[in-house]
Simulated scan of single mutants.
Amino acid sequence: MGFIAFLILGLIAGAIAKLILPGDQAGGWLATLVLGVIGALLGGWIGSALFGVGLEEIWSIQTWIVAIVGSTIVLLIWGFITRGRSRRTV
Rank of each mutant, 00 (worst) to 15 (best):
A67W: 06
G44S: 02
I46F: 12
V90W: 05
A5C: 01
L42F: 14
V37D: 03
W29T: 13
W59T: 12
G27V: 06
I77V: 15
T82P: 02
G43F: 13
L41Y: 10
I46W: 07
R88Y: 13
L11A: 15
G44Y: 00
F3A: 12
M1S: 08
W64K: 11
V53D: 15
L19S: 13
F3L: 10
W64P: 04
G43S: 14
I38A: 15
I81D: 15
V37L: 13
G43V: 07
V66R: 07
L41P: 00
S60G: 05
Q25S: 14
T72E: 02
L42T: 12
F6A: 05
G70A: 00
L55T: 11
L9D: 05
I4F: 11
T32K: 15
G36E: 08
L55D: 12
A31Y: 11
A15P: 00
I65Y: 04
L76I: 06
W29S: 14
D24K: 14
T72S: 02
G10V: 03
F51L: 11
I61K: 00
G43Q: 14
E57H: 06
F80S: 10
M1W: 02
G47I: 12
I46R: 06
T82L: 14
W64M: 03
G14T: 01
S60Q: 07
S71P: 01
G70F: 00
G47F: 13
I81E: 13
L50Q: 09
L11Q: 02
I61S: 10
F51W: 07
G39T: 09
L76C: 08
L41V: 03
L7E: 00
T89S: 07
Q62P: 01
F80D: 13
M1F: 12
A67K: 01
E56F: 06
A13K: 05
L9A: 02
V90L: 12
R88N: 14
V66Y: 03
L35C: 13
L11C: 04
I73W: 01
G2N: 07
S48A: 01
G54P: 10
V74R: 04
W45R: 09
Q62I: 00
F3S: 08
I61L: 13
L76P: 03
I65G: 01
L21W: 04
G28Q: 12
G2R: 09
L7R: 01
V53R: 02
V53Y: 03
G44M: 03
G36H: 02
P22W: 03
L41M: 09
W64Q: 00
G52Y: 11
I77A: 15
L55W: 09
G39N: 10
G2E: 11
A26R: 14
T82C: 10
Q62N: 13
G39H: 07
V34W: 13
I38F: 15
L7N: 00
G14L: 05
V66L: 04
A13D: 07
V66C: 12
G2F: 03
W29M: 14
I68V: 15
I77F: 13
S71L: 05
T63L: 05
L19H: 07
L55Q: 08
F80C: 11
A31V: 14
I77W: 07
F6E: 05
M1N: 09
G54Q: 09
V74W: 00
I8F: 02
F80Y: 10
W59K: 08
G54D: 09
G2P: 09
G28Y: 11
T89I: 09
G84F: 06
G79K: 01
V90Y: 11
L41W: 05
G10M: 02
V66F: 07
L50C: 13
